[in-house]
C-alpha cells in the first residue's frame, strides 16, 4: 500500500511533543544556537520570543529539518519528536515534514487554485481520488475557519485572496496532511489586526488537534495564546517556562528587561 508511505510512520507516544537536548547549531563558523535544552508539551502552544536575529526561526527550522537545505549548516545534540530522534540516519525527511507542518512569516500560497494548494500535500503522499481530496480540502478549510469564505471560490487562484486569507490558506494547506506539530514563524507579522485576531483564535482551537510552536515578535500575542514561552537572546535560551509565570515573574534579568520593553 503506497498510501502508507509517510502517512503513519511516526511514533508519537508520551506527553512531550518535542524534546531538545544540548542542541548547538552553526552556520559555517557562526554559532547560531547554543546548547539549547527544552521540552514542549503536547496539545499546547509554545511561544518563542526574543529580539531579531536571536535564532528563533533557526530553532523552528531544526524541528522540520528545513535547515538541511542550507550550505554549511551544522548541528550537534539531539532533537526528538515524540520518541524519535529526527536527525537519525534512517529518518525519512519527507515523512518528518508531513508530521511537522510549517507556516511562514509571509503568506506563500502556490500560484495555483485554492483547491490545488490544499491538495498539494496529500497528493505528494499519494492521494489521488477526487472524493478523498475534496474531503481533505473541505476539512482543512473548515479547520482553518476558511470554508465559509472560500467554498465557492475553490478553483480561483490563491493569489487573488487577501493577505489574511492567504495566511489561513497556508495554515489549511499545512493541516491537510494531518501533521502532529505545526510550526508557525511569526505568522501574523505581515497581517492587519483583524486577520491577526482570527489567526490567534484559530491557534486556540487548533491545539486540540495539533501541538503548536510559534515564533512571535509580539509579546502580548505570546502572553495571550501560549502555554509555554521560551525567551532567546543571541542564540541562548535564556529562560523557558509556563507563560503566565514567565511574564509575571521572570527569573532572569534579561527576560525582565525584554518583556518590560527595555530593549529589542
Amino acid at each position: 500500500m503506497k498510501r502508507q508511505n509517510g502517512w503513519d510512520m511516526f511514533a508519537f507516544e508520551g506527553e512531550t511533543a518535542v524534546t531538545i537536548e544540548s542542541l548547538d547549531l552553526y552556520y559555517g563558523s557562526f554559532h547560531a544556537l547554543k546548547n539549547i535544552c527544552m521540552a514542549m508539551p503536547k496539545h499546547a502552544v509554545t511561544a518563542l520570543i526574543g529580539p531579531s536575529g536571536c535564532g528563533k526561526s533557526t530553532l523552528l527550522k531544526t524541528l522540520n529539518r528545513l535547515n538541511d537545505l542550507i550550505d554549511g549548516c551544522r548541528i550537534t545534540g539531539s532533537v526528538r519528536i515524540g520518541a524519535r530522534d529526527i536527525y537519525a540516519k534512517e529518518v525519512d525527511v519527507s515523512a518528518l515534514r508531513k508530521n511537522v507542518g510549517m507556516v511562514f512569516q509571509k503568506p506563500n500560497p502556490f500560484p495555483m487554485s485554492v483547491f490545488d494548494n490544499i491538495a498539494y500535500g496529500p497528493r505528494t503522499f499519494g492521494v489521488r481520488k477526487k472524493a478523498e481530496l475534496s474531503g481533505l480540502v473541505e476539512n482543512s478549510l473548515k479547520a482553518a475557519n476558511l470554508w465559509a469564505e472560500l467554498k465557492d471560490r475553490l478553483h480561483k487562484s490563491a493569489l487573488s485572496l487577501s493577505g489574511g486569507q492567504q495566511q489561513r490558506l497556508c495554515i489549511a494547506r499545512a493541516l491537510a496532511v494531518q501533521p502532529k506539530i505545526l510550526l508557525m514563524d511569526e505568522p501574523t507579522s505581515a497581517l492587519d489586526p483583524i486577520s491577526t485576531g482570527k489567526i490567534e483564535e484559530l491557534c486556540g482551537e487548533l491545539k486540540e488537534a495539533v501541538t503548536i510552536v510559534m515564533v512571535t515578535h509580539n509579546m502580548q500575542q505570546a502572553a495571550r495564546i501560549s502555554d509555554k514561552t521560551g525567551f532567546f537572546l543571541l542564540g541562548d535560551l535564556v529562560e523557558f517556562g509556563d507563560t503566565g509565570e514567565l511574564f509575571a515573574s521572570p527569573k532572569q534579568e534579561a527576560t525582565m528587561n525584554y518583556i518590560s520593553g527595555r530593549f529589542g
Binding site: N64, L66, L69, K98, M102, N108, F110, G121, F125, V177
Partner: peptide, 22 residues
C-alpha cells in the same frame, strides 16, 4: 521566490516534486 520552494519542501515534497509542480 525561495518562499515557494520552502513551502513545498515543508509539506514533505521532495526536490523533484517541488521543481516540477511549483
Amino acid at each position: 521566490g525561495d518562499s515557494l520552494r520552502e513551502a513545498s519542501l515543508a509539506l514533505g515534497a521532495g526536490r523533484l516534486r517541488t521543481i516540477f509542480y511549483v
